[in-house]
Write a protein that binds this DNA or RNA. Sequence first.
DNA 1: TCTAACTTTCAATATGTATTGAAAGTTTAT
DNA 2: ATAAACTTTCAATACATATTGAAAGTTAGA
Lengths: 168, 168
Amino acid sequence: MQYPEAKEKFLQTWGTLGSSWGISRSMAQVHALLLISPDPLSTEEVMEELQISRGNANMNIRDLMDWGLVFKELKAGERKEFFRAEKDIWKVAKQIIKERRKREIEPLFSVLEDIKQVEGDKNNRKHQELIKAVTNIEGVVEKADFALEKAIKLDENALVGALFKLFK
Amino acid sequence: MQYPEAKEKFLQTWGTLGSSWGISRSMAQVHALLLISPDPLSTEEVMEELQISRGNANMNIRDLMDWGLVFKELKAGERKEFFRAEKDIWKVAKQIIKERRKREIEPLFSVLEDIKQVEGDKNNRKHQELIKAVTNIEGVVEKADFALEKAIKLDENALVGALFKLFK
DNA sequence: TCTAACTTTCAATATGTATTGAAAGTTTAT
DNA sequence: ATAAACTTTCAATACATATTGAAAGTTAGA
């Protein structure tokens, strides 16, 4: 396999991975492109490389910046904006976890708390089952959230080490 | 808030959560319905409750069974099939992690290994950057995979406890 | 202030994915 | 062997989401 094919495969793989985790395919592809680019790229270059429109390129780059995965870089004497990705994948993973915690876990909690306030016959089986499920979910989400919060404060080897010791 | 509204909110919330994690909205909704149902439900009942077609109900129930989250239950004297969901949410989480590891991490590894076999000028910067990125990703995925494999062998409290101790 | 270089927005449109419903398939009982 | 009860499949279709591209907005320098 030659470079162009390998590169294409990488872009596809990262895109597919992203879309199976609820991240838009082309946002993941733009990210992939920046991950393997030795130098920062301009919007034009992203458009050219991925064969996508200006609007699409611009919006995905912007979203990647909102996620804290991509940064704007200015070149001396150039008016154009250039973009580079964080390349340390453990930092990338931590950043994604951090963002998803903020975007999803917090709102989820607030909805679950709402639902638990359901009024009505406390002896009704459906009513009980709903409250039971919601309470159970809250417990697991709370613990998973705690685990993730701690995990992203560690470096990758410390995390592996800690879990390893539990099974030695 | 009365029961019907709370139930609706729960179905919506679980559906949205699912779709933001790459699981189809109605598969998540069928799952939610079974999670709060005191008794196993038939395909007919699922269709009725969620206002979806027979094909849709059947296919999502089947997918949920493939994921190991829902089980077939036969009632004495009834020809129809009934379905119940695993209600222990920690077990549900572990099962989802187990399935995703199998479905996604293993194939991902094999593609990344392929890409690393790229031929050509080892001194080319783009070439180097691609190999660097892929190698880096493999390292993180390997460690995350190990961490998850271990985590799902623990009960939820042991996991929290282990991480807690690291920060005491 | 004006203009050229560049970025952002957004209504129109394309594309991929989910959903339907009826036909085909299967199972069980008689 | 037949028929009724039930499940599965899949081509057609609906729907949500991603994508386009041109117009509007912004910025920096002359």
